[in-house]
Every structure is written in structure tokens, then in C-alpha cells.
Design a protein around this nucleic acid. Structure first.
Lengths: 261, 261
DNA sequence: TGAAGCAGGTTCATTATTTGAACCTTTGGT
DNA sequence: ACCAAAGGTTCAAATAATGAACCTGCTTCA
């Protein structure tokens, strides 16, 4: 792991519940020597990726991040585009909907929306990163994303989150194959207990998925009838998102969708 | 300059007008060897700070930045707080208003708003970083911000932007002293031709300025009458912003404002 | 009040990582 | 099918990152 990654890794410890972190906190979190951490923090500070609370000396995320986020959204408004469809889908279905993009070995959430009609709610934290092997989002990404994803995953251990989590690579390959044939991913309680989810990929080019959009719901509310309905709604959203992102659904996948719908 | 800074520096080349950059572009921009740049880009890519356009192989800002920005705004909503006052001030005065935070040797813009009533408009690019010595924002920051700022500046050359730019450190010290005594900064066409600006600091603690809020206007529209009015409006905005950020205006500065108002 | 404890921050010799010239590979144009 | 240009990789040389030890300033408690 290079120095850059080590430094950037420090930023990932911030979250809604942990907005400020001290030097010693970082040492406890990372196990690295405090001199090293301090130098990394200083450099991040100098570049505006962190700010320091002058009285507590704790660090928080800095203003440079906002500047960059603003540039990205103005020039490649993936979040804005995706979020309107996520919201629409959530309001139509009454379930939690989220969209995530492929990042290395994980799915990084772009946005989510919970219309929250039902009595039980699925918890979702935008700051969390989702594993590829244990979520419908991830399966959709593996099935329709960059072809090297599967191979990359094969080199790492598959963490067990629940009793349903797939931890065997061959089984994962089967699940991915099923996803390819169905044109959507379905994962049942493999990441969180009592939560199952559906997902389909969206595209910013005409080759590999850029990310996926997913409906997560309490297992108790999942019926075959609404499952088919949800999948159709997801396909529709994915088509619109891909179009607005300047991408297209690959022909073979599109055919699948047309036949099934 | 450490490796981290070199890598993060690559991100600063992105802007609204340059949303995608290729490896060779980077080489031309930085002058560094392409192997080095490539490794840096790969590491930024792996951490989601960049994404790669699969067809052109060019790089663009990544989704991790959005995630971090979202966390920062949820836990320390400086931009949201500041932007409402910036907007209000712009609408009241009909001029361009912007707020920036102190970052190392520069001011990093948080947000701006241009009510655009006048025939001539001041151009403002959110992605640009403002020099401390040549802008009212900067003078306000030096005068009321961390005490080491002046010393840091003394070690670097003061770049000449226009014929009015202060390039002599002693002169800058005088201008800062004047700013301290007035309780606001006034800079006349020192950064851009025909643009002059007023600025006052705001605080997120009770010691040193966190940033400054500024009105920029065509030199032709600047009159002593509206200047006094603008300064009062800025003071009011700075007081409100500081309060919402959890900071307070230091007593000596507050006295100045009370007497002058 | 003053001594101890602790967190933040700094130094410097050691060590490991970054670096870039040269090389290989892929892509796009003619 | 070729060439040129850009993307990407390798490996010895050089430079920058590392962490134990040290310093400093703040808080706490006898």
C-alpha cells in the first residue's frame, strides 16, 4: 500500500457520527505510528482536505473536498441525475432505493432515498461502502461491469456477514451467472439480516456498467408479485439514468429486458 | 513536497472547463515523468478520487469526493450556512458576493452568488484559488486569521496581477494594519482590472478568522456612500455566519464594528 | 502550587518506497 | 498492414517515508 493510499485512507474514518478525529484517535484506528500519521495529516491539512479545530486540535474534513465535489457535479452530474430517479423509484415503490458506483472491490454509494411507507425500515448509511459479493448492487456490478472484477475478487477472501452470505467463490460465480441470465440481481439477507435487495446496472458508456441501482426491503415484504414489478421499475430507471449519463444499455442486456417485460 | 501533496496536486487541475485529463495532459501540466504520474493516478483511482473514462482513458474526479463532501456538509455545514447569507447579501446589494476559507497561503472559495443587476458583471470562478496579498478576502484573512499567516507570506514572492497589486511585503503589512484598524478590508483592482472588493472575516471559534465574506464590484460602481453601506451589510452577514458556525466575533473587532456602525 | 500524566508535535538515523529512463503494449489513423 | 503516439510496466538508483526517542504545553489532582 503506497503512501498516498495510506493518507487518503485516513479520510475514510470520518462519518456522520464521527465528524472530528484527533491524532491519538487516528493512531488507535490505524495502528500506525503517530509521527507518520501526523505528517500525513499535516499534508492533507496543507492541501485543504482537512481542517483543524483550533481549540480541540481535532481534524475534520476540509473545504477542498467541497470545491472538487462542486466541479465534479457541474461537469459530470452523475449524482444529480441518479438521485432524481432514485427518489422517483423510492416514492413509487415505498421502499429504500440506493445507487452506487463501482470502485475497486466495492460499491461506493452515490445517493439513496427512503420513502418510508412501510412499518419497518431498512437502514442505510451513505458513508458505508458495500461489498461486491454480498449485495445485489455488487452482483449487478460484477455481472455487467468491467470483466476483471470477478478475477480481482477471486484473489480475496469473501467476508461472511450473515448466515446467507456467499463465501465460496464458485458459488459467487454461479450467482453472477444467474444475474447475467436474469438481467437483474437478487440477493437475500446476505449482507444484513432480514434485508433482501434487487439491483440492475446502469451505464455511462456502451460497454461496462458504471454502477447499479437497487431496491432494498425487509424480507417479510418481498413477494414474487412485487418482485417482478420492482424489477421492471428498476429497468426503466436504469435505462433513463444510462441515457442521461451519456451511456447505453448493451444490446444483449436490453434484449433480455424487452423479452422479460 | 511530499508524495501525498504531489498526488493531490493532480486533482487541482480539474475545473469546470477541464473536466477530463489524460496521462499526457498531466505530464505536460506537471512536467513530472509519466510513470510517476501514472502510479499516482492509479492510486487515486483505486481510492475513488478519480474515475477513468473507459473509452478515452482520460481521468475525471471520482465519487469518493462526493461521499466525503456529503459527510462534511452534514456534520459541518459551513457551505450551507455561508451560502444563504452570501445569496441574501448579493440580492440586497445587487453585486457579486463570495465567501472563502483560509487554506494555507490562499483563500479557497466556498460559494458565491451574483444577483447581477448591474450592466457590468464581475466574473468569478469557484474553482480558482485566490491569493492572500491581492484580494480583500485575503487581507481580511491575514488581518484577523491565524497569526502565522503574515510570516508565512513573508517567505514567498508576491505575484503581480495588475498595476495595483502590492508586491512589497512592507506595503502589505501596512494594508493589513489598515484593515485591522478599519475592521474591514478594501482592495482596489489588485487582482483583476476594474474590480475592487470589500471583505470582512467570519469565525468558527472565538480566536482566529475561519474565512471571509466579500463583495466584488466594478470599480466604476464603487462610491463612498455605497461602500459604507456595503461594509455594514458585510458586518451583519459575518456576525450571523459566525454565530451559526458556532464561533464569535472577537471582542476588539466587535467593538470596532459597533462604533463604526 | 507544583509535579505527574498525557496528547500534540518534532527530530534524525535507518529503511523502504518512490522515482524515471528504458521498454513493452495497445490504439487509432492512413 | 504499417506507423506513430499514447497508455502502461519494469527495475536499479535515489530519495523520501518511517518510528523510537525526545520536547512542549496543557490539564489534573494531591
Amino acid at each position: 500500500m503506497g503512501t498516498i493510499t495510506k493518507a487518503l485512507n485516513l479520510l475514510t474514518y470520518f462519518s456522520e457520527s464521527t465528524p472530528e478525529i484527533s491524532l491519538m484517535d487516528f493512531r488507535a484506528l490505524t495502528g500506525t505510528d503517530k509521527a507518520t500519521i501526523h505528517r500525513h495529516l499535516t499534508e492533507l491539512l496543507a492541501n485543504g482536505y482537512l481542517e483543524q479545530n483550533k481549540s480541540t486540535r481535532k481534524y475534520r474534513l476540509g473545504a477542498s473536498i467541497l470545491r472538487l465535489a462542486s466541479i465534479r457535479e457541474k461537469t459530470f452530474p452523475a449524482r444529480r441525475i441518479v438521485s432524481q430517479w432514485v427518489r422517483k423509484l423510492s416514492e413509487e415503490t415505498g421502499e429504500l432505493v440506493h445507487a452506487s458506483v463501482i470502485q475497486q472491490m466495492n460499491m461506493s454509494p452515490l445517493c439513496f432515498h427512503d420513502a418510508g411507507i412501510g412499518g419497518t425500515r431498512v437502514y442505510f448509511n451513505e458513508a458505508d461502502i458495500l461489498p461486491l459479493h454480498a449485495t445485489a448492487s455488487g452482483h449487478a456490478a460484477i455481472a455487467f461491469g468491467p470483466p476483471d472484477l470477478l478475477q480481482t475478487i477471486s484473489r480475496s477472501r469473501l467476508r461472511k456477514f450473515t448466515d446467507f452470505t456467499i463465501t465460496d467463490f464458485e458459488q459467487l460465480k454461479l450467482a453472477v451467472e444467474r444475474t447475467r441470465q436474469n438481467g437483474f440481481a437478487y440477493v437475500d439477507q446476505a449482507y444484513e439480516q432480514e434485508v433482501c435487495s434487487l439491483a440492475v446496472p446502469f451505464f455511462e458508456n456502451d460497454r461496462f456498467a458504471y454502477g447499479s441501482i437497487s431496491i432494498a426491503m425487509p424480507a417479510s415484504r418481498m413477494r414474487d408479485a412485487n418482485k417482478a414489478q420492482h424489477v421492471r421499475a428498476l429497468w426503466n430507471a436504469a435505462e433513463n439514468i444510462s441515457h442521461e449519463l451519456g451511456g447505453t444499455i448493451p444490446q444483449n442486456l436490453k434484449n433480455l429486458w424487452l423479452i422479460a417485460a
